[in-house]
Amino acid sequence: MIPAAFDYHRAATLDDAVSALAGGGEDAKVISGGQSLIPLLRLRLAFPSLLVDVGGLGDLRGVRDEGDSLVIGALTTHDEVTRDPLVAQHCGLLREAAETVADPAVRHRGTIGGSIAHADPAGDLPTVATALGATMIARGPGGERAIGAGDFFVDYLTTSLAPDEVLTGVRVPKLGAGWGYRYLKFNRTAQAWAVVGVAALVRRANGAVAEARIGLTNMGTKPVRADAAEAAAAGAAATGEALAAAGARADEGTDPPSDLHGAADYRRHLARVLTTRALVAAAGA
């Protein structure tokens, strides 16, 4: 199918992008790789009046080492994330999840910023951002602000970004020694969206789990943390049995959808099974 007509502005600078968005009003949208947006335009499920293309803003691309954290420029493609040595060294969970996004050609165009700003609860990277407790950095007319993942994802395809704000980067904590991780994406075919995904981070100390952080994909209208399972895992022995007890609480407090790709009860069940498996893998149990 064919997109409806829209105006197009290629931003020369970040400030230019912000002012173009401000001038474009509610129906202006940012585009970078377009891998989420263009299919929606083609299916005529989105009708922006103006697209502000930030794709040329080279400053927003690449990974910066900022001591305790990495800042990943919003325009860094999934493919670049999977190949970046800093990400590999300090945030393997993100690399592992980025490898599961769509397919190689889409990963060449799709960006981490686009994926996170699109805020699809079936998306992999919003979940990882949530599990990592990432901070989203946005630029608007009033300058820059940092938004924690818990505040950033508001609802289905909805973030707390203002219409005239541009997501410029994602700050993720460096995972020190002792942290293990696993992203498990359960989809029906290789390219399909996750029915359920689990991003698990486990810090081990003295043969036990000292801390666990678990994000769930497609278990609600936004990416969610499995709080009860995290609490149950903390302090548990790093054994399959103990972690299964924690995994069994993964769906507590979630409100998964029932749709073509899975009924809510099946999603709850999958979340429990996959969380157990992800915890076991992350803990090296």
């Binding site: 029915v195 069994a248 069940h269 999958l270």
Partner: peptide, 22 residues
Amino acid sequence: CSPENVWRAIHNAGGQGNGGAQ
């Protein structure tokens, strides 16, 4: 025979498909 259909068949038969459930 999607994962969900298979799981549901096991679940309904009272088999092991409830792994992880309380």
